[in-house]
Amino acid sequence: MEKKLYRSRKNKIIFGVCGGFAEYFNVDATLVRILFIILLIASVGTAVLLYLLLALVMPEEPEERGETSGDETQEE
């Protein structure tokens, strides 16, 4: 199965970009967030623009079949 990069639905704080990278590379999301903060400090804020650009470009992870969201109602 082919891996694709998505913004995470489950592991997100703002837009799910760091969580998506963590799921793609199979590492802890906290580690990705710490690396992003280091990049943010080192790049004097340019990383914020990169994050926002990625949030716009990366598609959100599709919902898995069988999961129901709180918006959906089930009829009996």
Rank of each mutant, 00 (worst) to 15 (best):
N26S: 09
L54T: 02
I41K: 03
S69R: 13
M58V: 02
E23K: 10
T46C: 14
E75D: 13
S8L: 00
A47P: 02
L40H: 09
I37G: 02
N26M: 10
L54M: 11
P59V: 00
D71G: 14
N11P: 01
Y51K: 06
E76G: 14
G70E: 15
Y24H: 06
L52P: 03
E75P: 04
K10T: 05
R7L: 05
E72D: 05
A42K: 14
G70H: 15
E75G: 10
M1S: 09
K4A: 02
I13M: 10
L54D: 09
I13D: 13
R7E: 00
G20C: 09
T30K: 14
E23D: 10
T73A: 11
R7Q: 07
F36T: 01
G16S: 01
E23R: 03
R7Y: 07
L49A: 11
M1H: 08
M58I: 08
I38G: 06
Y24M: 09
R9A: 06
C18N: 10
G45P: 01
L50N: 00
Q74R: 12
L40G: 05
V32N: 01
M1E: 06
E67W: 07
Y51F: 12
F15S: 11
S43P: 08
L31P: 04
N11R: 01
G70L: 15
P59S: 04
N11L: 07
L39A: 12
Y24E: 00
L53S: 07
L53E: 02
L31C: 08
Q74I: 14
P62G: 04
G19Y: 02
V44H: 13
I41Q: 02
F36K: 00
G20T: 04
Y24D: 01
A55R: 00
N26A: 10
T73K: 10
E23P: 05
E61L: 03
A22G: 08
G70T: 15
E64R: 13
G19R: 01
V48F: 14
E75H: 15
A29T: 07
I38L: 11
F15D: 10
G45Q: 06
I41L: 06
V48T: 14
M1N: 09
M58E: 03
L35V: 13
N26V: 13
G16M: 01
E67F: 12
V27S: 05
G19K: 00
R33K: 14
L53W: 09
E2Y: 13
A55M: 08
